[in-house]
Amino acid sequence: MHVPDGFLDLPTSLATAAVAASAVALSLRGARRELDDRAAPLAGLVATFVFAAQMINFPVAAGTSGHLIGGALAAVLVGPWTATLCLTVVLLVQGLLFADGGLSALGTNITLMGVVGVWTGYAVFRLALAVLPRRIGSVPLAAGIGGFASVPMAALTFAGLFMVGGTAPLDAGSLVAAMASVHTLIGVGEGVLTALVVGSVVAVRPDLVHGARRIRAASIQAAAPAPSSGHRA
């Protein structure tokens, strides 16, 4: 999904850079509320895991591969504001040191993966969680559904950007269809990996999972009506 230099024209790249800069500024404020004693140690680890996981391309169709984006995964584990920062750090290191994604496209890549990937993934996760049974086992499943949806959403956003400011004339319908179909397949991998990783963390330390807090709070309240001092890591 990493957009190279040369795909989008300068005005479009500047516009996505402005979106990315605004999102990072808002996230620096929002993340302060998410980064409590429990979440803080996990945030750096989540960014690092997303970086490592993005190295692992898996085959999806004849001669095509995909890799985890990790936006929904990070949002469920540490909260969406912190997730945008995690993806931004990953994309900065990839762009500056690994030449993975263009430099003029840095804002585009942060917008696609760190904003659209994170927030659509998180929104679909929350919707799925609201529909699924209220128990802890629903959290990994909802996270997987969010992860699945986030990939075609980011891919369609790229298609939209290319129609506005692409450096070559393309048929919109054909580009949208191609981006959506390939990235729906990659989304299946994203969903499975997201569910597996969130499931592993939920199994070991459910108290650390940002997206599990409401369900845990409800079940703790149901088990013990008296307010407890809470479980601390």
Partner: peptide, 10 residues
């Protein structure tokens, strides 16, 4: 890791 082109490259 697969070395095949990723979705966007494809």
């Amino acid at each position: 890791a697969s070395t095949a082109p990723d979705g966007l490259e494809r």
